[in-house]
Amino acid sequence: MKEVKMVVTDMDGTLLNSLHEVSSRFFDVYKQLKQRGILFVAASGRPYYSIVEKLHPIKDDIIVIAENGGLIIENKEVLFSNIINVEKLQELYNLVTNIKDTYPIFCTKNRAYIVRASDDLIETISEYYSVYTIIDSFEDIKDHVIKIALYNSTNSETQIFPYVKHLSPELNVVVSGNHWVDISEAITNKGHAITILQKQYNIKHSETMAFGDYNNDLELLKCAKYSYAMANAHPNVKTIANFETKSNNEFGVELILENLISESS
């Protein structure tokens, strides 16, 4: 592992435990990564403002890939942004707002636009999208949309994906969690974002370490020689990853990073 120059980790189900918390153990490890000049990247389906809230103590030192690769920000500077074509958006709005028991969230850089939802549902969604506006029509969306997140309280693979999978390959449609399906432009994925950073910082595939747990991490893991699936990962992720670590509730990321630090000492 001595050659690793960049570490990239997903958030939910990976760095975050099941209570959506980052451990103090991680922040201790991060200090040592920084001392060794190893670049740290948080790559998530979450919006930028939610990721930096979770990683607030180090938010000015890291690179953030938000919205599954639709947005890359370093120290408040936007390095990359990929919005959904405005002409497609109205059609997509009509489609996703008519899927039974599914709640669409239109994600922009600074806030989420949530179509009619109950107070209980808002409480659930606001863990991920804490800055939001409730809307009743397409015209209420006032910003460029980077991603459409679709939430179903039962199961995303069976209750959402069958109704939107036909949008691929023109758009990127991915099951990103037990309750979530994300729609974005075709090139938008975490792997594409990492490729941009690898070129910018002259970091090779063999110098990259990555962690993930769900299908929106597949392209990311392909970009790293040291690719790790969490023990709690989707079977697809375990197939793609070169290695496996313990679950997000057993400090799976921290354990590997501690090994990395030990080997680079």
Rank of each mutant, 00 (worst) to 15 (best):
F161W: 06
I65S: 04
T9G: 09
A43F: 00
V41A: 00
I84T: 08
N249S: 12
D12S: 04
L221D: 06
S156W: 05
N155C: 01
L218H: 08
S262H: 14
K5V: 13
V131C: 09
I146D: 05
R25M: 09
E74M: 11
N202I: 13
V29F: 05
M6I: 14
V174C: 07
K199G: 10
S118N: 11
H144P: 15
A186H: 12
V173H: 04
A193Y: 00
T133P: 10
Y113I: 13
N216Q: 03
Y151G: 06
K204C: 09
E258D: 09
D12E: 08
Y129K: 05
Y93M: 08
N82C: 15
L220E: 06
Y226I: 11
E127Q: 14
T102S: 01
T195P: 09
E263V: 09
R25V: 14
K225C: 08
Y30S: 07
I141M: 07
T208V: 11
V173C: 06
N85V: 13
P169Q: 09
I261M: 02
F138N: 06
V173P: 05
K34I: 14
K109L: 11
T9V: 12
P57G: 00
V78L: 12
T195S: 15
V8L: 07
L55W: 01
N75P: 06
I62D: 07
G45W: 00
V173Y: 02
H205A: 08
G69F: 04
G70Q: 03
K88P: 04
P57K: 00
T9Y: 05
S126C: 14
Y113F: 15
A233S: 11
Y113S: 10
L260T: 02
K204R: 11
I135F: 13
L221P: 04
D143E: 15
I114N: 08
N242R: 12
N82P: 13
G45M: 00
V22A: 00
E207I: 12
E244T: 15
D120C: 03
T102H: 01
I51F: 00
E87Y: 10
E53L: 01
L71Y: 00
P104K: 04
T97I: 13
H20E: 03
C107R: 02
S18W: 03
Y48C: 02
T133D: 15
I135C: 12
S262K: 15
A112S: 11
G69S: 05
I256Y: 08
S206L: 12
P57W: 01
H20A: 05
E67W: 01
E123P: 04
M209D: 06
T14R: 00
Y49T: 00
D140M: 12
E127I: 14
G212K: 05
D136M: 02
